[in-house]
């Protein structure tokens, strides 16, 4: 999966019982890819001692405040590993 800037994506809603780096405030929320931000080991794997950890593309994704909080005009940009995302179409 390669996500180009502008692609609409949804952060996964799952609430795993292990460490993850999907902030609660974006779970299930729809945003837009700003850019790819490099390839990094998946924190979920590193925290569980899985070696080698999966290495994934991290995407900077911007979410509109109105979607996150019901009000506001700002954007919040969050870095999300590829497996945290699904295309929103």
């Amino acid at each position: 999966m390669t996500l180009s800037p502008g692609t609409r994506v949804r952060a996964r809603l799952a609430d795993p019982d292990h460490h993850t780096r999907v902030p609660g405030y974006v779970r299930g929320q729809t945003g837009e890819v700003v850019e790819a931000a490099g390839q990094w080991p998946l924190p979920d794997d590193r925290a569980r001692g899985i070696t080698p950890p999966r290495v994934e593309t991290v995407y900077s994704v911007r979410f509109p405040a109105a979607g996150l909080w019901g009000s506001g005009t700002h954007w919040v940009v969050v870095d999300l590993w590829e497996s945290y995302l699904e295309e929103a179409g």
């Binding site: 902030p23 991290v58 005009t73 700002h74 954007w75 919040v76 940009v77």
Partner: peptide
Amino acid sequence: QIVVWDAS
């Protein structure tokens, strides 16, 4: 336009 960047 305010943009807030949540660092990692």
